[in-house]
Amino acid sequence: MARKILEVNNIETYYDHVRALHGVSFDIEEGSITTILGNNGAGKTTTLNTIMGLLDDQPDKGGITFDGKHIGRKDTEYIVSLGIGYVPEGREVFDELTVKENLLVGAYLRKDRKNISADIQRMFGYFPVLEERISQQAGTLSGGEQQMLAIARALMNRPRLLIMDEPSLGLSPALVKLIFGIIPSIRDAGVTVLLVEQNANMALKTADFGYIMENGRFVHSGRSADLMEDEDVKEFYLGIKMEESVKGEQRYKRKRRWG
């Protein structure tokens, strides 16, 4: 069994007095691609923001361990410095900085200055279009290019774990394919990947393990190959209809066995 790089143990997160996560636990094997699936409002982004220390004084309960070190309630800067790269939902590139400056911001914590330009070249290997845009302001890039830039920026710190929050959001199917195509090569370069997605089909095809989240807790998990065969997952996340007759569906709503 591979080593666990990230262990999340029964965390609870509150927004003011509202509990958003009701005891979430999962772990990530080093060198794997893990995906968390769930609909809008399921708590996926809240889970990630809690891990990254972006919510003040959260998690309220529970612990998070990265590579043996406790990172719950720590400063984001510290968590990033341990080797977690974060690609936030909605990309959040620095609009008025150039592509190159964005990448340099990603390398802010790097001490080995002379390797930085080599790494920038490596990013251009993943995303050639960024090289053409190198001195353009990031705000003028298309959505897909911004997503690529956000991924490249997070990789510039040479993280050991890359967390991506809905990289497919608002992108055309062709671009989604392109971006998901890069994920295995990122893993092959030695980076463990945690992928949070609504696009269950693409995510399960790419990932080794999957977790399914509803209403602030995990309801199902397993190897993604198994999940893809699961009837509930098929119907509610992959959109494959099981019922032969329309009649049966109209009379009652099929119930999920979890939740």
Binding site: D75, L97, L109
Partner: peptide, 24 residues
Amino acid sequence: TKLGLAMKACQQNVNAARMNGIPS
């Protein structure tokens, strides 16, 4: 300078700056 770049990054998007390890 690197400090200047960090200042610009924080000006534009403080959360994104923190996600890249800048002590905002």
